[in-house]
Amino acid sequence: MPKNKQAALPPKMLPGEVLRFEDVRLSFGELKILQGVSFSVFAGEFVILLGENGAGKSTLLRLANGLLKPDIGAVAVCGHDTRQVKTSLIAKEVGFLFQNPDRQIFNKTIREEIEFGMKLHGIPTRPSYTEFRIPDFALDDDPFTLSRGERQRVALASVLACEPRLMLLDEPTVGLDDSEARQLMDAVKRRQRENNAAVLLITHDLELANAYADRKLLLERGRVADADILSWEDFSAQA
C-alpha cells in the first residue's frame, strides 16, 4: 500500500503530457528533500534538470518512474499514477539510465545486455547498435571488459532500444570526454526526435544543457522552477 493516503484521485494529464508532478513532497526522516514540486514534461520535449549537488535531482528522477513514492502529492507518468502501479509495469514506456552503468549491466555479452529490455517487453526490432558506436564485432564481448564510457553507451543503448515514450537520464555524460558526451547526447536527441519522445535529463554541464535543452528546470530548496540559465554566473544567481 502506498504511504501517501491521497491516492484516491489520480492526477489528470493533459493531451501530450507524459510526466506530471503535482505538489510533490518527500522527506527522508527529518530531511525534507522536495517541498511542493509541480511541473510537467510533454511529448517531444528535451528538458534538462539542473541543481546543486544534493539538491534532490536523482530523487526526483526516481519519483518520476515510481521507484520512490511521494509522501504528499502525486506523480503521473504516461497515464499512470505512480502510487498505483509497479515500476516494472511502466518500464516499457519509461526508460531510466542510472548514473553508474555498472548498476544496470549484468549480462554476459553486449548483445544480450542491449536486447535484455527488448525481450522483456516483447519488442522484436533489432536496435541499430552502430548508433551508439558499438561496432558489430564487439557485440559478443563481455560488457565488463569495456571502459566506463563504453559501458555507459551500452547502458544507454539498452534503454533507447526499448523506444520509451519518456527517457529519464541521470547524468549520462559523467566520466565521458567532450566528444563522447556530445555523441551520446546526439544519439539521445536523434531518438527523441524520431519517436517524438520526451527526455528529462540531469546534468551539471551547462554547455550541453544550453546546446540540447528545449527547456531547463532548476531544482533549488526543494522546489522546481523554469530556468533560463546560460552560464555558471546565471546559475549561481538563480540558485
Binding site: S88, A91, F98, N100, R103, Q104, F116, G117, H121
Partner: peptide
C-alpha cells in the same frame, strides 16, 4: 546500498523485482 541500487536499476528496466 549497492544491491539496493542494482535492484532499483533492474526494476526500472522492467524486471519484476517489485513483486
Amino acid at each position: 546500498e549497492e544491491m539496493a541500487e542494482i535492484m532499483e536499476a533492474q526494476t526500472a528496466r522492467g524486471v519484476e523485482l517489485d513483486t
